[in-house]
Design a protein around this nucleic acid. Structure first.
Length: 384
DNA sequence: CGTCCACAGGAATGACGGGCGG
DNA sequence: CCGCCCGTCATTCCTGTGGACG
């Protein structure tokens, strides 16, 4: 049930597999392949299909002589231009130091290794938008024009992205070269998600351990999200874990609903606890107010209390302007609801209220080394 | 019907830290 | 290794404004 598991069959992606396959097939006859751009929302199978096609291709290539090399790099995991390039080298059996060289030097070594091996290279750059947003399209530009002075060998690039907008960051030359072909992954429908879940459940669950309606619910919930298969699998996995923990015979609907809450809960907790100190201080003020039933604080009141909270924390408070900025960031994150209202003679301000459950916020502060001392000690509860 | 409150939120500028080329 | 540049966060200064109230 884990994210990186690559099943032997990918239901409802036959079309995409065929299309990608036909783009890459010429390499088996030592012919030029088009570069391609693959996009679709998260959990639509882009990564799985790319990896699947790559592995099929490299198996096929061994049958016919093995001149095709496939590389899969996740740009977000690799992180920097340098590490992406270094990672590409390692697919050619070329080890480069993890630091010390310039990126250009690593790229040169990479190119000369291609020449030496006369390799047909298929490169998949997953989450390519992260690389481009962080470092620009320089590396992509270099990669797309390697072919120009290569008498033996070929380089084909498949760029995978879930952000369609990122094309705007690309140089027109890079864009036209990269998007010779485009493959779009549409979101899965509820029915398709069900098939995927069924296939995985066969491997992960004992027969009869999963009710049909629980499975349908997972599919329906994920379909209403983005048609996100990852979400569907998460739901099923967490539901399974919950059922297991309470020694239930089978996974039922309520396990799935519980799993959904749990996933949401963890997501919020993660988002809140990684907030910067001053944003947390603002949240703390809102939390203490709402705890005693005080809702819809105004900006002025919030700022005063924020300053006093800062005093107790032993840090200098920020300006009201900055606090206003942080507040609208929290608003955009969906943590807080801040609406501008006019109180006539009493001026214009914001009505600010919490948009996430107080319980989760409380948990954040209890676990926070800065804030836990400001809170009353937790009531005794049996460990859950 | 104009005034004026209590902010909103844009623009310019400064402080700081980290990466990069020379 | 050093200076430079750039992005981020914060401050300062500022203009804009919906509507209750006199």
């Amino acid at each position: 049930m884990s994210h990186d598991f690559l099943p032997s069959q990918l239901p409802h992606r036959e079309e995409e597999i065929l299309k990608l396959g036909s783009i890459l097939a010429p390499s088996l006859r030592r012919m030029k392949c088009s570069n391609a751009f693959i996009y679709g929302k998260t959990g639509t199978g882009k990564t799985a299909v790319s990896k699947y096609v790559l592995s099929r291709l490299s198996r096929k290539s061994e049958e016919v002589g093995g001149w095709i090399k496939t590389c899969y790099v996740n740009c977000r995991v690799a992180g920097t231009e340098y590490r992406v390039t270094a990672s590409l080298c390692s697919f050619l059996g070329l080890n480069v130091p993890f630091t010390g060289l310039s990126t250009a030097e690593v790229l040169d070594r990479f190119i000369s290794q291609i020449k030496k091996a006369k390799a047909y290279l298929i490169i998949v750059l997953d989450e390519i938008d992260v690389l481009v947003k962080g470092y620009g399209d320089r590396l992509l530009y270099e990669l797309t024009r390697i072919n120009e002075n290569l008498e033996a060998g070929r380089v084909t690039i498949l760029g995978v992205s879930n952000d369609l907008h990122f094309k705007e960051f690309l140089d027109p030359r890079v864009l036209s070269s990269l998007s010779e072909e485009e493959v779009v992954f549409k979101p899965y429908t509820a029915g398709q998600l069900k098939d995927i879940l069924l296939q995985r459940a066969k491997l992960a669950f004992k027969p009869g351990a999963l009710t049909d309606s629980a499975l349908n619910l997972c599919a329906a919930l994920a379909a209403s999200e983005h048609g996100d298969a990852r979400r569907a699998l998460d739901l099923l996995r967490v539901a399974g874990e919950l059922a297991e923990r309470e020694n239930a015979e089978r996974v039922e609907d309520y396990h799935v609903r519980e799993a959904q809450k749990r996933i949401e809960h963890d997501r919020i907790l993660e988002a809140l606890s990684s907030l910067p100190l001053h944003s947390k201080a603002i949240l703390y003020v809102l939390y203490t107010a709402e705890k005693v039933g005080e809702k819809g604080l105004t900006t002025g009141v919030l700022y005063e209390r924020y300053l006093s909270a800062c005093g107790r924390l032993g840090v200098e408070g920020l300006t009201s302007r900055r606090v206003g900025g942080l507040l609208s960031e929290l608003d955009m994150l969906g943590v807080v609801d801040a609406q501008v209202v006019s109180l006539g003679r009493h001026g214009r301000t914001k009505r600010i209220r919490m948009k996430v459950p107080l319980k989760i916020v409380e948990k954040v502060f209890l676990e926070d080394p800065y804030f836990c001392s400001l809170l009353p000690p937790p009531k005794h509860k049996s460990p859950s």
